[in-house]
Design a protein around this nucleic acid. Structure first.
Lengths: 148, 148
DNA sequence: CAGGTAAGTAACAGAAACGGTTACAAATGT
DNA sequence: ACATTTGTAACCGTTTCTGTTACTTACCTG
C-alpha cells in the first residue's frame, strides 16, 4: 500500500498545479512514473472519496473536486487506507480468547498504539495538498526546463 | 509486517512479567496464538537488536536483556521495521529522473511525510515495555483464572 | 453521424511478503 | 546418554501490490 499514498499525493499535487484544467491519466502516469491504468485506479478511489472529479471523452481528464487548501494529507491517507487499521493490527493474531492474557494483551496494545496513530494523523492533517503544490512550485523554480 | 509488531510487543511484555525467568518459545507461542517457530524468528530479531537474550537447552528460553523500563515501543517498532522506511515509501516509484517534477515531488513528499513519522515515533518512544506489562497486570487483576 | 479521445473496469501475470509448518542441527542441563 | 530447547533453513499457501492488456462507455469535434 506504500506507493499508493505517495502516488496519490503526487496526482493531487499535480492537479492542484493544473488549476482546474483536466489532466489525463496518461500525463499523470508519465509524471508519477507508473502506468495510466494504475493512475485511473487511484483516481477512482479519490473520486469515491470526493476529492477529485473526472470527465470522460476528448479533452477530458481529472481535476480537483474542491480547493486544494481543503484537502489534507490525512484525507489522502484515509482514502488509501486498507492500511490505517492494519498499521498496528492487533486483531489478526488469534490468542487464547476469553479473559486470558492473549485477549487482555490485545486490548492493552490497542490502547497504547492509539496515541501513536493519533499523533501521525494529526501531523498528516496539518498538511494540505495546496502546501504540497506550493512547495513543489518553489522547488521547481530552482531548476530550469521542467515539463512533467 | 503488522502482526510482527504486535506479537513482538506481546512477547516482550510477557518476558517482563516473567521477571528474569527464561520463557520457552512454546509458552510464548501459546500465549500469542502463533507457532513456536514464528516466535523464534521474532526473538532472533529482538536478540540482534539487543533487547532479549536466549538460553539453549533444557530449562532454557528467552529473557529480557535489559530492564523493561529501558525498552520502548519505538525500540520494538524499529526492530520490526522493514516497515518504517516503507511506511511512506516515496522512493519506489520511478518518476522522470533528473530535475523534473517527478524527482522534485519525491523530495517534497519526503519532507512532508517526515513530521508525521516523527510524531508517531515520539508517541511510541513514550511507552515502555514495563508500562505495557504493568497495564497488563492491572487488567488481568480484573478477571480470574488466567494462565497463559 | 462518424471518428477519435479518454475514462472506467475487469482480468490476468509476476513479484514480494507474510504466516504457518516441517525438518534438522547445535547446544545445554539432568 | 538423553531429553529439552534454541537456531535456521526450506517450503507451501495466501494475500497484496504493481504492471499490463483488453474491452466497454462516454464525450467532444468535425
Amino acid at each position: 500500500m506504500n506507493t499508493r499514498f505517495a502516488v496519490a499525493t503526487h496526482i493531487l499535487a499535480y492537479l492542484a498545479h493544473a488549476q482546474g484544467q483536466p489532466v489525463s491519466s496518461d500525463v499523470l502516469a508519465s509524471s508519477a512514473g507508473t502506468h495510466p491504468v494504475v493512475v485511473r485506479r487511484l483516481v477512482s478511489m479519490l473520486r469515491e472519496a470526493g476529492l477529485v472529479q473526472s470527465q470522460r471523452g476528448a479533452g477530458g481528464g481529472t481535476l480537483l473536486a474542491r480547493p486544494a487548501t481543503d484537502i489534507s494529507l490525512l484525507d489522502v491517507f484515509r482514502t488509501m487506507q486498507d492500511a490505517e487499521p492494519d498499521l498496528f493490527q492487533v486483531g489478526s493474531t488469534n490468542p487464547n480468547a476469553h479473559c486470558q492474557l492473549g485477549r487482555v494483551m490485545q486490548e492493552t496494545l490497542e490502547g497504547l498504539f492509539g496515541p501513536a496513530l493519533d499523533a501521525m494523523r494529526a501531523a498528516l492533517a496539518a498538511v494540505s495538498v495546496a502546501q504540497v503544490a506550493q512547495e513543489l512550485r518553489q522547488r521547481l523554480a530552482d531548476c530550469p526546463g521542467n515539463s512533467g
